[in-house]
Design a binder for these strands. Structure first.
Lengths: 141, 141
DNA sequence: CTCAATGCAAACAGTTTGCACGACG
DNA sequence: CGTCGTGCAAACTGTTTGCATTGAG
């Protein structure tokens, strides 16, 4: 498929029901989801849908800039609806809970000399560790 | 950390040559490397070494806290020697160049209300975009 | 001598892709 | 109708694992 320029996406023109379903699942979830979860949700509506289709649509939607792909752990890709404001993730290694938070990183960027001249398009910040309750349990050993 | 640098590793009880080789390759590289690259380097010294061994050692070394696993792109795991000070990555989407930089993130952390009570062990910050020279080429479209 | 670590190959999970058919515009 | 998108299955990639063997301590 010839790569289309940003803005020249045909999401509006030929929107299959499956593609809409993927987008709907993601927007309902209002958080990150792995492809398999999306697959299972979409399957409820379209039992014959295939994982391949899910991946293809995720790719399309990602290229269209509608969704975002993040990697919280190293096995899986997670996807989420691209909201206006960027947010980052706080990941608990104990219970796997993921908390989202916002923070303006422009300041940091301007204080990183190595980044001068760099046109930054994407920012990824993640803290991982143990949440309050998991910390307690960890303490007891 | 109490562990010493390559040449005298103290992880479990046994330090195999292959394990030392992995560590040595990584410390020589003084940067991140994918497992396959490490594999190929180690292979020069131990032609019969297997990828499985590399992965097993990377896992062991990671658990021992000697090396770190980072994900710059979504396909591969990259590994690097854990230095004293944490650093982050500036990734050029054009030429693939990776620049490392340091920045104290404690301040940010203390300003993220969601993180209160959280015991943060690891921090990951990445900026991606186009470096100065790649930006120029991009401009011409 | 013992047991951790190895080599090898087969198994895995997540993701991608080729093909013929179906459906969107 | 012409394509784009789909379902299906098979291929691929990076990583893990079972098993018999080796070798460090």
């Amino acid at each position: 498929m010839a790569s289309s320029l940003p803005g020249n996406i045909q999401i509006g023109t030929r929107a299959s029901r499956q593609r809409q379903a993927v987008l709907e699942v993601l927007s309902r979830a209002k958080g990150h989801m792995p492809a398999v979860d999306i697959y299972q949700k979409v399957q409820k509506k379209f039992p014959r849908v295939s994982l391949g289709t899910i991946y293809r649509n995720l790719k399309t939607l990602k290229e269209a800039g509608l969704i975002e792909e993040i990697h919280l752990d190293e096995h899986t890709h997670y996807y989420e609806i691209k909201t206006g404001g960027e947010h980052y993730h706080l990941l608990c290694l104990g219970c796997g809970k993921v908390v989202e938070f916002k923070y303006p990183l422009e300041y940091i960027l301007s204080n990183v000399p190595e980044a001068s001249g760099f046109r930054v398009l994407n920012t990824d910040l993640r803290f991982s560790g143990y949440c309050a309750s998991c910390s307690k349990n960890e303490d007891s050993r």
